[in-house]
Amino acid sequence: MSDAILQIDGLTVDIATPRGSLHAVRDLSFKVEKGKTLCLVGESGCGKSMTSLAIMDLLPKAAKKSARRLSFAGEDLAKATPKRINALRGDRMAMIFQEPMTALNPAYTIGDQMTEAYKLHRKASEAEARDRAILLLGKVGIANAAQRLGQYPHQLSGGLRQRVMIAMALMCSPDLLIADEPTTALDVTIQAQILRLLADLQQELGIAMVLITHDLGIVARIADWVGVMYAGQIVEEGPTEAIFRNPRHPYTQGLIDCIPVPGRTEPGGKLGVIPGVVPSLVGEIRGCSFRDRCKHAKPACAEAPPLRQRPDGHSWRCILEDAA
Rank of each mutant, 00 (worst) to 15 (best):
I218K: 03
I259T: 01
M165R: 06
A54R: 00
I243Y: 07
L195N: 05
I96H: 01
A297I: 04
A242R: 08
K34H: 13
E128R: 05
T102G: 14
A231L: 02
L53M: 14
K295R: 11
P260D: 10
P100M: 03
T37S: 08
M56K: 07
A16V: 14
L59S: 03
D9A: 11
G287A: 12
V41A: 09
G238I: 04
A208H: 01
D215N: 15
L307Y: 05
E321F: 05
K65V: 11
H296P: 00
K295C: 06
I319A: 05
A107E: 09
T115V: 15
G276F: 11
L137G: 12
K83Y: 12
C258H: 09
G269M: 09
P106L: 07
I190V: 15
A304P: 08
K36N: 13
E181C: 11
A94Y: 02
I178W: 00
P279Q: 02
G287S: 10
A63D: 11
L77Y: 04
A220Y: 03
K31H: 15
E284M: 04
T184I: 10
Q98H: 10
E266K: 10
I134T: 13
L176E: 01
C301V: 02
L135H: 12
R26V: 12
G158L: 11
R196A: 13
L186Y: 05
G138V: 04
L149T: 04
C258G: 14
R26F: 08
P275G: 12
L307R: 13
D91I: 02
A24F: 04
S71H: 05
K31F: 13
E236N: 02
M101F: 10
R310G: 13
R122S: 08
C258R: 03
Y230L: 05
L136M: 12
Q162E: 04
A67C: 11
E128V: 07
A302M: 01
A323L: 07
G111W: 01
A169V: 12
G238E: 00
L307W: 08
M165Y: 09
D180I: 08
C288S: 05
R293C: 15
A67H: 02
G238T: 06
M114G: 11
R291G: 09
L255M: 08
V32A: 05
I285T: 03
R122G: 02
T81F: 04
D312H: 05
I234Q: 00
S125P: 06
L186W: 07
I190L: 11
V25E: 00
A208P: 03
C258N: 10
G268S: 07
L307A: 09
A223R: 00
E116H: 13
I274T: 12
P82Y: 11
P305N: 10
P239G: 07
M171C: 12
L177I: 15
E99G: 11
L40A: 09
L11K: 10
T37L: 06
S2M: 05
L186F: 12
S44N: 07
G35Q: 10
K119M: 15
